[in-house]
Design a protein around this nucleic acid. Structure first.
Lengths: 151, 151
DNA sequence: GATTGACTTGGAGCTGACTCCAGGTTATAC
DNA sequence: GTATAACCTGGAGTCAGCTCCAAGTCAATC
């Protein structure tokens, strides 16, 4: 039951080794194991020799983690998103649905924050000192929706 | 030389105590001292009894820190922004100028990331599974400028 | 059968960003 | 004069998120 030295990159049963997976996703092997350890990723399939094997679907999940991380989300907070990409039917879980909508609003707020900083930079570059203008996101009041198109 | 019990909130010389500053900015006293300790904030003015006093300008700086933190920026990365709000003439420091522009691009990329996640959420909500669509931000290639208006 | 390389596990160590605490000072209130 | 409150300093502890390491397994190669 050995496929003696297949070099096509993809192993038997369309599985990737942890090394390959690391190369594909840009996540280090250690970090992949760490994500499994803390339960962010489900326990990976193993070969008889207990080596982990990953599917394309696993890889997509990891890419999603990277993507969510870029938005500043904590590993804990992204768990529902990962569940979301596994079992497909969102409407069956109204709680999750609400949670996701909630998070969407947070992200929109975050975009507004970022946009204000971009504006601050622009005004700093255009003029010389930013006088009355100021980042308004320090309070916890409702934010204005950003209507500006991103340049 | 004592203003015996002025309760107007603002002390002599238009200075705020660390407690007042904490209340105004929402940053804890400990954290304000920590920011000073690591040099993110300049050493605060002191009264004769060595208590810190803060100006409106200091408060603005702290609000800016809060704002930048919301965008996921590290304390280290935000140093140039704080310098920027202190000495006004950006054009005198071409290196800083470039750094800021660089950072602006990063923020724009980050906005694009966030927007894609919002899209992902929307498509997840609208349809049931996201098929071909996927977060494209895992690679390090140049990103498309986001042209969409934020909802 | 010894070496090499890709893995395994469990656990220790590290960095950033706080957060907490002990011990000390100073001013005002009782 | 003693208690209380608001500060001070220096340093230790905490948590998230890795990152590194030692000791072991297993398969293929020399």
């Amino acid at each position: 039951m050995s496929e003696a030295g297949v070099n096509t990159g993809v192993d038997m049963l369309h599985g990737y080794s942890i090394k390959q997976t690391s190369e594909i996703t840009g996540i280090t092997e250690d970090t992949i194991r760490y994500y499994e350890k803390i339960g962010l990723l489900p326990r990976a399939q193993r070969k008889e020799n207990s080596h982990r094997i990953y599917s394309d679907h696993d890889i997509e999940t990891m890419k999603l983690i990277t993507c969510l991380k870029k938005t500043g989300m904590s590993l804990d907070d992204m768990r529902p998103y990962l569940d979301l990409s596994l079992d497909s039917n969102l409407s069956e879980y109204p709680e999750l649905h609400e949670m996701i909508l909630n998070h969407k609003q947070k992200i929109l707020d975050q975009i507004a924050s970022l946009q204000q900083i971009v504006d601050l930079i622009d005004s700093k570059i255009d003029q010389n000192f930013l006088g009355p203008q100021e980042c308004e996101l320090t309070g916890d009041r409702k934010k204005m929706p950003v209507r500006r198109t991103i340049r």
